[in-house]
């Protein structure tokens, strides 16, 4: 059909766009309503689930980590919202399932981790193993009447708490040295050589320049430079009472 020129074409085009926009509007409206209905359906399912299993989620570490793992896989961050944020103010529905306790559990755990890292900073330079944090928290728990059989704080809980600190630009980072998870509470990253030296220390318990040269094939000055840097950051302590000077790491004590 030859394109009609002139006024007829003009209003034809207007008409087309008109229909298209109304069509688009209806599509959007149906889509929107479907989304909201689905949300409310999901919310109902959630509340039934929470009445049944909420206690599990709150105090069983295995369940908690399984729930958190699934959330991350489908892109949900239940810890994003404060536990007391009312729904109409952008609170998340997960608080119903988790209840303020679980959010508070992770946040309170994170508060305690921040405090432990800060207290031990001068001792270990700001690098501490997750297991040591766990044992310190349990010891503290006992001393504050926690009865020692504390809500089992698993390493996974600790790692997740530290992860949720990320938005605070805190420089709190979970890094892996060798096989153990460590928490670094100082902004400065470890370069490859430094991490390697700490790894060796984890295996042997200490390190000397000779050991580094033999095992890693580094030339002595390079090894010395790396060790001096680690000393400057207070990650290593020096021991000069037995033959060759040896370097130990309080964080892998």
């Amino acid at each position: 059909m030859r394109r009609r020129v002139g006024l007829a074409a003009l209003d034809r085009r207007a008409q087309d766009s008109q229909t298209r926009s109304t069509h688009g509007a209806t599509l959007r409206r149906t889509h929107q309503s479907e989304l909201t209905t689905q949300l409310s359906v999901f919310q109902a399912a959630l509340s039934t689930f929470s009445t049944q299993y909420s206690s599990e989620i709150r105090q069983n570490p295995k369940f908690r980590s399984e729930f958190a793992r699934m959330c991350t896989t489908i892109g949900i961050d239940p810890l994003a919202a404060s536990s007391n944020r009312p729904k109409e103010k952008g609170g998340s529905i997960w608080s119903e399932l988790l209840g303020t306790q679980v959010n508070d559990f992770y946040f309170e755990l994170a508060v305690k981790i921040v405090e432990v890292c800060r207290d031990t900073r001068s001792k270990n330079g700001g690098l501490i193993s997750v297991s040591e944090v766990q044992s310190t928290l349990l010891k503290k728990d006992q001393s504050t009447g926690g009865g020692g059989t504390g809500l089992q704080i698993s390493e996974d809980d600790i790692i997740r708490s530290v992860e949720c600190l990320k938005p605070l630009g805190s420089g709190f980072e979970v890094i892996k040295i060798g096989k153990t998870n460590m928490i670094r509470s100082v902004p400065k990253e470890l370069n490859r050589d430094q991490a390697k030296v700490l790894e060796v220390i984890q295996v042997l318990g200490f390190v000397t320049i000779g050991v580094l040269v033999d095992n890693l094939g580094w030339i002595a000055p390079r090894a010395q430079a790396v060790v001096d840097d680690l000393m400057a950051e207070a990650y290593l302590w020096v021991d000069e009472q037995e033959g060759e000077t040896s370097y130990w790491a309080p964080c892998s004590l």
């Binding site: 810890l79 994003a80 536990s83 508070d104 946040f107």
Partner: peptide
């Protein structure tokens, strides 16, 4: 964040908030 939540005691606020 740690001091503010310590002071609140309950209903702690999330880091992203």
């Amino acid at each position: 964040w740690a001091v503010y939540n310590r002071a609140r005691g309950i209903e702690l606020i999330s880091p992203s908030d």
